[in-house]
């Protein structure tokens, strides 16, 4: 239908997609290699962890919360599974995967319980657990590094499996994006998540338990962060205390660029994926364009600040129409 197609064109996601394509088009003439399937698969592989974490963070943001602890959760879980693999290399991959998801979910549940049962603002809770989880990495490892030569081959190989030219890590991100999209679009609980974040007091009238929604969001975000713990440690073949330190802020930036509202109830999987890819493209293109790696952070800073500024323009409440429409 042309009308619904036009509506689609006007969405933020379409704009963001256009921006991403524009960025690629601008790079292409100078560095045609960047657009080769191999490079694009590499780009996806580089951005997969950001996408995954941003999907979880989005759920929390949708319920008017924020989770600052996901990167610390990732580091803690990653260290624990790395140690498990180091000392019991014969266990295989399944226990590692299961443990990472369960442990991540448990750490997320701690956040969720404090927010839900005690009604402590999520920023305070996750600021606290961020420090605790990060310190726990040190306590678990005694400050040691777990290096690639201490990891079992299957532990390292899984994320690198290539299926159709795309890495397993990328496939996991794609699968997770599809699952979260289906959850948000098709499941009752997913829709309730939007309603609870959009208008908590109205949600109460509609029989939606806002606290349970917040808890669910933290639980899922934690589970994803835990899974990413294993994926990260395996992808970079090293586990240490400062893994992914400060990464939570990049994750939030990807969400905000993708159109997720910090005040809840607004955001889509497509937007978040595109927001993460946008940051990924910039990060991968800068060295090509000859920008010193030391400039990358400043450029990201400009991009993030600019994006949130434009975002704020778009989401400002417009006046309610009171005057009757007159024939033009």
């Amino acid at each position: 239908m042309p009308e619904s197609f036009l509506r689609l064109l006007r969405t933020r996601e379409a704009g963001l997609l256009g921006l991403n394509l524009l960025l690629l088009a601008a790079i292409a003439p100078f560095f045609p290699a960047f657009l080769r399937p191999g490079s694009l698969a590499g780009l996806l592989d580089d951005t997969a962890l950001l996408i995954l974490l941003a999907l979880g963070e989005m759920l929390v943001l949708l319920t008017r919360g924020v989770d600052l602890s996901i990167a610390a959760n990732l580091a803690f879980t990653g260290m624990v599974v790395a140690l498990l693999d180091q000392y019991h290399p014969g266990l295989g991959l399944a226990p590692v995967l299961i443990l990472s998801v369960l442990m991540g979910a448990a750490l997320g549940a701690v956040n969720g319980l404090l927010v839900w049962r005690l009604r402590i603002p999520s920023i305070v809770v996750t600021l606290g657990t961020l420090s605790i989880y990060r310190g726990a990495v040190y306590l678990a490892s005694g400050g040691r590094w777990v290096n690639s030569n201490q990891m079992s081959p299957q532990f390292l190989a899984f994320v690198r499996l290539q299926l159709g030219g795309v890495s397993m890590l990328s496939w996991i991100a794609i699968a997770c994006a599809v699952l979260v999209a289906l959850f948000l679009r098709r499941s009752v609980r997913g829709r309730d998540l939007y309603a609870a974040g959009n208008n908590p007091s109205a949600a109460l009238y509609a029989g939606i338990d806002v606290g349970v929604m917040q808890f669910s969001a933290f639980l899922i975000a934690g589970a994803i962060a835990g899974l990413c713990g294993y994926l990260w440690v395996s992808r970079y073949a090293v586990a240490y205390t400062d893994v992914a330190s400060g990464f939570e802020l990049q994750v939030i930036a990807a969400c905000v660029i993708g159109g997720v509202s910090i005040s809840g109830g607004v955001g889509s999987v497509a937007g978040v994926v595109l927001g993460a890819l946008f940051l990924g493209i910039i990060k991968n293109a800068l060295p090509l364009v000859g920008v010193s790696p030391f400039f990358q952070m400043a450029v990201s800073g400009v991009v993030i600040t600019g994006a949130v500024l434009i975002n704020a323009r778009g989401t400002q409440a417009s006046a309610l129409r009171i005057l009757e429409r007159r024939p033009a």
Partner: peptide, 22 residues
């Protein structure tokens, strides 16, 4: 709910389901 569609606002308390999905 400002950010949701009119249809979903109408059915917020009992969305029509097909199996377990909306």
């Amino acid at each position: 709910f400002d950010a949701l569609t009119v249809a979903e606002n109408i059915f917020i308390t009992g969305r029509p389901l097909k199996g377990r999905s909306v």
